[in-house]
């Protein structure tokens, strides 16, 4: 699968991580990848175990339970230039600038996810994503990593 431009939302500003996850989830719902219930599963999963990955990215996805609400594989991207804190408590700062919403069926998403992981393991690459000015730029940036 490939990233689609209509699955990428730039320059968002959100009050908290739940709102960020909802944005990423809504993109998945609107694209027909998941049922609205999946978004709740994404929030539940993040409360259970944080989906903050480090390097300013988070990859909210549903719980095991929530998998039944997935209709097809999809990945959404929400860019939050001003950042949003994904930590549980006030003491830690898990600022996130790029949120990847994940709905994976049959491991079809693993290729692109692996690309995202390799690309974002360099923090300067994440900065490029966080500064990107168009959806196409994000897609092109992620394409820089070829296995």
């Amino acid at each position: 699968m490939d990233l689609q431009e209509n699955m990428i939302l730039l320059n968002q500003s959100v009050p908290n991580k739940t709102a960020a996850i909802r944005l990423a989830g809504k993109l998945l719902v609107d694209a027909g990848c998941v049922e609205p219930e999946y978004v709740d599963a994404m929030i539940a999963r993040d409360q259970d175990v944080s989906t903050y990955m480090g390097n300013f990215i988070a990859i909210p996805h549903g719980t095991d339970e929530g998998k039944k609400h997935i209709k097809k594989t999809g990945i959404s991207v929400v860019q939050i230039p001003m950042g949003v804190d994904f930590s549980e408590d006030a003491a830690t700062d898990n600022t996130v600038t790029v949120v990847f919403g994940i709905a994976g069926l049959n491991n079809e998403h693993l290729d692109i996810l692996s690309q995202i992981a390799l690309y974002c393991s360099n923090i300067d690459n994440v900065a490029k994503l966080a500064d990107a000015q168009s959806p196409k730029e994000i897609i092109d940036l992620l394409k820089e990593v070829e296995n």
């Binding site: 259970d48 990955m53 990859i59 994976g104 998403h109 692996s114 390799l118």
Partner: peptide, 18 residues
């Protein structure tokens, strides 16, 4: 290992594999 085996563990695995 992660909760659903869908996201975070897959990313971690690709990084370590690399």
């Amino acid at each position: 290992a992660c909760d659903a085996g869908m996201g975070s563990s897959a990313m971690g695995a690709s990084l370590l594999r690399d």
